[in-house]
Structures are given as C-alpha cells and as structure tokens.
Design a protein around this nucleic acid. Structure first.
Lengths: 343, 343
DNA sequence: TATAATAATACAAACGTTTGCATTTTTTTA
DNA sequence: TAAAAAAATGCAAACGTTTGTATTATTATA
C-alpha cells in the first residue's frame, strides 16, 4: 500500500533536533541570531528530510505572495505575449512570479479577473484594458483597496492612482507617414481600424498631422476605417476597398501588421508592384512582416521593453511606503521604423 | 493624510453583527446549518463592508490553491501559447487558475521552476520538457511528493506516475509523405532538425516508413537534418542545402513550419514554381503557413485540444483519492493535413 | 410544562509560517 | 567567582480561514 507522504514542515525538523520551531525558521533564514553551528545542523537536517517551505503559509504570515497578476486581452496575439515576456524577465529577477489571465477581449472577464486578483493572491496587477472597457470603476476599486496597479497599451483614459506605460501612437504614425512623404509619395492611403478606439484615433491623427504639415491634400477615397473585429472580415473589407479605389495609391500606411499584410496580398493580386509602384508600412512588427515576400516595413513597438517597464513601475510601487502618497507615473515609449523591402 | 485601508475580514463582520466567526464563514458558504435570516444578514453586511475572502488564508486552511502550474520551454512560440490557451479554458471552467512559467529552453530553469512549484503554490503541474532535458529525476521528485503531473509534447521517455499527452509524430509524417507519394512525387526531400531529438527522429521515421512502403529509393542527397537551434542559422543551412542539391526535388516535407517557409523562400528564389514543380508540406500550422504566398500545406497539430486534454487529465488526478494507486494515462492525439496552395 | 429532539450558534484547534519579546545559556568583566 | 553583558533560544501570538465538536436556543412531543 502506498503510504501517505506528508510534507515535512518546520515542526518536524524542530522535533528531530530538539529545538524550537522559531529557531529552525530563523536558522533557515540564515539569521545571525542563531548560532552558526545550529544553523548548520538545521540546514543539514532540512536537506536530509527534504524540507520545502510552504509558500502559502509564508504568504499568509508575511502578507506578501510575490506574485504579480497580469491581465491581457488575449493570448493569441504575439504583442501581448512579448509584453508578458518582458514582465516575466524583470519580475523573475526581482523574485516575483507572474500569473497571467486573459480577459478574452471582454469587459466582463476583465472585471472577473480583477476581482479574483483582489482576493489577495497577487501583490499587484499589470493590466491592458480591453477595447470594450469604457468604465474604470473596477480598476479604481482595486486601487482603493491599496493594491498597486500598472496599466499598459490601449488606455483611453488615465486612471488616478495607477502608473501607465504607453506607446506614442500619434508620433509613430506621423513619423511613418512623413517617411513616405519624404520619398515623394503623394497618394498615401490610410488603413485603420474601428475609429472609436483610441489607438486608431491616435494613429489616424498622426497620419493627418503629417499630411497637413507637408500640405498634401487629404482624400477621403484613400482612407479606410475597417469596422470588423475578426480577421476574416478584415480581409474582405480591404479587398473591397482596393478593388473599388478611385485613386491609385503610391503608398499605404496600415495601422496594424495584419492590415498591412492583407493590403500587400490584395495589391499584389491586383498587379501592383511592391515597392516600385506602391510602398507599404505596417504597424506592430512581430514576425509576420518579416516572413512575407516582399518583407514589410513596419513601425516596431518596443514590446518587450514595455513589459519590463511595467514590471519595474509595479515593483517600485511595492517598495514605496504606503503612508505617504506617491505621484503616479506615465511613461511613453518610443517606436522605431524598421525598413524592409516594401518601401 | 491617506488613512490605511485594512482589508475587512470575517472577524470584522462577526463583531459588527455580534455573532461568531464560524457562523459568518458558514453563512457566506450558504451553509444550511445557519439560519436563513442570519445568512441574509451576513451577506448584506459582507457586501456593505466590501468583504473579499482572502485566498491565501483559504488555501492554507483547505490545503488547495486551485492553481495549476504550467511550464513551457518558451513564450514566443505560438504552439505553446495555444496549448496554454487550451489549458486555461479548461481550467477556468473547473475553477482553476494557471501560473505559467517559461523554462527558457534550459534544463536549469525547468528544474528551478519545478522546485518553485513544489513549495505548495500549485495543486498540480503541466509540463513540456525542454529539449535539453535528459534526466527526469526532478520530475520524479515532484511526483514522489504526491503532486500530480501531466507531461505534454517533446517527451522522450515516459515518466512513471505522470500522465502524458502526445502527438503521433511518426504517423503524421507518414501520412504527409504518403500524400505526396500518391501525387506521384518521387524525389521527396526531407528537412528535419537535430536528429538527437525525439520529435525529429519520429518525424524522420515516418518519412522513411512511407518511402519504404511505396518502394521509393531513399536518397541521402535529399535529406537534411538541420543542426542549428536559432532561426537565422536555419536559414543559412537550408539555403546552402538547396543551392548545392544534386537532385531536383519535386516535393519537400519539412519538419516544422519554419523549415517549410524557409524552404519555400529559397526555392522561389532559385526559380522553382510552387506547386507546379515542387510541392511543400510543413509541420505545425500556427498562422505562418497561411500568410505566405503561396500559402503552405501543413500538418496541423491539435494544439488547443492538447492543452485541454492535459488540463482534463490533471484535474482528474486531483479528484482521484490518493490512497489507491491509479494507473497513469498516455494520450496520443491525431493530426490532420491542411491542404493549401503549396501542394 | 418538563423533556426530548432538533436547530442554530459558538468555541477552539488546525493549516505552516514569522517575529516581538521573554527566557535561558554563555561569555565577559571587575 | 559573582554580577553584568551578550548571545542563543524559546514562547506564543499573529496571519484569515475552515471545520469538528460542544453549547445554547428553539421547537416538538407527551
């Protein structure tokens, strides 16, 4: 019969060595308050007995779990995964683990996840709000409980009491479009997403700003705000747009990598030569643009750094004493244009 | 001055209502042992005071954390993320959270992660061993502590006491190559990876098996076992291989999607017509193959299902009483060939 | 209306740590 | 060698729950 293996705990070591639990605990902490020889005895016994501290008991006692809760809208977007990698690397270096939850792009799930995290499982939260998220009371509620929060990406409104890590979308788009203009492109098409979303608004703003600055007329016919949320329909929208386009574009600025790729596919099919007749720039740069033939020029977001920065800010919050109020930070990260064959 | 907000706990509610902590606890559990009117009073008060149960205390008391530890070799491979999604969905339905750790493709990290999980943070572990992993004592050690373990993907040796979820690599490759043969391909090239790895051995086996079955001579010149671990060098290896190839292949079976894509790129550059002159099949199917022009036929692994199945097996283990020994299960999942333009 | 049966609640130990303070042991000092 | 100082250890409360058992309050029974 398989005998029940009970975890060995401090008490077991204490009994074996005929000393108190307190001493064992301190010994394992290498606390100089316990005699060196005792410490050594304890270490040896702990090893011999296969002792493993109980993280849960530790957390209860210390009030710290050393876990960072991360909520992202979805798993299957390399952008978020790359951010998580940044968070994880930084967190791990500082002795934190991360607990990732997906909000499945739904406000409800986001709130549920947040509530789950409020139950004391995590020391703090890094969150990228859903596009659906319009209310921020659930986030504020967490903050009011004294739980540190850092927000990143897709923030449409600053939340008091949280740190923020963002991309300068506006500037990034401006730079990209400016680049096209300087290559003497005139008919620059814009492919954006749902215009109600802050990201797409900002990217659109950048486009407009650049066009205006260089006195290039803005033509409605060259502008598409995709309405669909799912990939298949995006494809249809983009195809229709270019099939029926009134003016031949000599460049396209696409607000996501996927829009960029779909655009390239469509234009190639329509017989355009890339980059001879038309240049393409995408936004995102997580692998796809590189694989395609011709490879696509992209605005690269500092995704990994975004995660690192978010983790850094959170851990800073941990270390701030909470009886004085600390001003919260807003970090804007710079993008960079990665030149490839499509321009 | 910001007044310290202390978490409200059962005791606070109890004191307010002049009843015992035990009653409050049971009331919130909706335990019929407490009078309905009391339960209602408690619910109301809990809500009013903004009570949130302390997960850590609960876990300590109950001995269950309701967390599943997941260890994957890396974050930036869609395959693993997709598996995680499967795990997460299944876990969430059964009231578990998942804690993902990356072993960064290193045995050391894998072991460290495992040790971290041994500290009672998780109720069980789902692990995909690193390619580096040759010893399994660290896994056995966890199992011996009575922690349920499920292994998936890249398993080179069955570990006693753990469940396993695998892909039938051998069969999948066989089927793919057979498909090519039936399209009357004769010079079928094989692009594999480091042959020491079980995955690549199995996929190679399938290739050989199919060729033998249909009496097609196996030609060394058409076989490449890539040696590199990193992507850039893979590219070089594949280019060199096809640049210097003695026999013109009329089909290529590539052991990963990336090998497939690199092959396509190289062959297109060399002027081959795909699929007219040469057919390509990749292995994996997570987006890349679809984007490429022409799109690539792939062996699709049931990635998401793999995760679901792993979670299912683990949760089954949770529910098995641990005083009787339960036989461990090995599940082999079927792949399927997704036809696209490259064949 | 006393007594038994049942319903409702309370007490206290347990989960495995940490840690302030008290106590004991050892060493130093005069 | 006794007293003082310093070092080592131990006691017990605390962290916030859950839960078996004891106790009290209520209702049913005769």
């Amino acid at each position: 019969m398989p005998l029940k293996k009970r975890r060995v705990k401090l008490e077991d070591i204490a009994r074996k060595l005929n000393i108190s639990i307190a001493t064992v605990s301190r010994a394992l902490d290498d606390n100089p308050r316990v005699k060196l020889s005792t410490r050594e005895k304890v270490f040896k016994m702990a090893k011999a007995m296969g002792y493993m501290p109980n993280q849960i008991a530790k957390s209860l006692s210390s009030g710290k779990t050393n876990i960072i809760g991360v909520i992202i809208p979805r798993y299957d977007e390399p952008f978020f995964i790359e951010v998580c990698r940044g968070i994880d690397d930084y967190a791990r270096e500082h002795n934190y683990k991360i607990l990732i939850s997906s909000s499945r792009n739904s406000f409800e799930f986001e709130r549920d996840n947040l509530i789950a995290f409020e139950r004391g499982l995590v020391d703090g939260i890094i969150l990228s709000p859903t596009h659906e998220t319009e209310m921020f009371t659930h986030i504020r509620s967490v903050i009011n409980k004294g739980i540190p929060v850092v927000l990143f990406d897709n923030i449409r409104e600053e939340v008091q009491g949280a740190d923020h890590v963002l991309i300068d979308d506006d500037m990034a788009s401006f730079k990209a479009v400016e680049f096209l203009i300087k290559k003497s492109k005139k008919n620059i098409a814009f492919i954006g997403g749902i215009i109600e979303k802050k990201v797409f608004q900002d990217r659109y703003k950048g486009y407009i700003k650049a066009m205006k600055k260089y006195n290039i007329p803005i033509r409605k016919e060259l502008i598409l705000h995709c309405k669909s949320l799912d990939r298949e329909y995006e494809d249809v929208e983009i195809q229709q747009f270019f099939n029926n386009i009134a003016i031949q574009p000599d460049a396209v600025f696409a607000c996501t990598d996927n829009y960029g790729l779909l655009t390239m596919k469509t234009l190639l099919r329509l017989g355009y030569k890339i980059p001879e007749e038309v240049s393409i720039i995408g936004f995102g740069d997580l692998g796809l643009g590189e694989v395609f033939v011709p490879s696509m020029t992209c605005i690269a977001q500092p995704t990994y750094e975004m995660g690192q920065k978010a983790a850094e800010l959170l851990i800073e919050q941990f270390n701030e004493s909470n009886d004085t109020d600390h001003p919260k930070k807003v970090i804007k990260l710079k993008t960079k244009l990665v030149l490839r064959d499509s321009t």
